[in-house]
């Protein structure tokens, strides 16, 4: 099948901006965000998975991070970062899951010298923490909650 791409953002306004560019380049896409009805979401996913002309799916990180099977896509682009890396991983797993036969590429687009550098560092810390003590409840909780120290780090630096 054709190479298809899922594009994630946590802001629907960012998806709006992206739609404008896709229209300019005449690239066919579907969209999935929390404001849509269940029927509209189903239709968007089905058309993305089956229509060869539709090569891009614009998804909000929150609406599209669990359950959906979108192995028609083998390319994932994240337009912005989420401080908890597991949320991003769940989003990427829409394409990288059982049934996928092609290698999946993931691109994270970040802007240098902004708070995003620190979000990347924070993600790395969370990954290390989960990896070092997998299965322990207290660590599990601290890995999924943004602490005061985390916030201080994000906005003020170390």
């Amino acid at each position: 099948g054709p190479i298809k791409t899922i594009i994630f953002s946590q802001w629907t306004r960012m998806l709006d901006l992206f739609e404008y560019s896709l229209n300019q380049y005449c690239i066919q896409y579907r969209r999935l965000d929390g404001s849509m009805s269940l029927a509209a979401r189903d239709r968007a996913v089905r058309e993305f998975n089956t229509d060869p002309e539709v090569t891009v799916m614009l998804m909000s990180l929150k609406a599209g991070n669990l359950g959906l099977n979108m192995v028609a896509a083998c390319h994932v682009i994240l337009l912005d970062l989420w401080w908890n890396p597991t949320t991003e991983d769940q989003a990427i797993d829409r394409a990288h899951r059982i049934g996928q036969t092609r290698p999946v590429t993931v691109s994270r687009i970040t802007i240098k010298d902004t708070v995003e550098d620190r979000i990347l560092a924070l993600q790395e810390e969370k990954r290390k923490m989960v990896a070092s003590a997998f299965g322990e409840d207290r660590v599990g909780v601290s890995a999924t909650r943004l602490t005061a120290d985390d916030l201080r780090y994000l906005f003020l630096g170390s």
């Binding site: 190479i3 594009i7 901006l17 992206f18 560019s21 690239i27 390319h75 337009l79 687009i109």
Partner: peptide
């Protein structure tokens, strides 16, 4: 925005190789 430009470049490069 620079992010949209970067994402479109990735998208279009895949489209060409396709």
């Amino acid at each position: 925005s620079s992010k949209i430009k970067a994402a479109l470049e990735i998208l279009l490069s895949h489209r060409e190789s396709n």
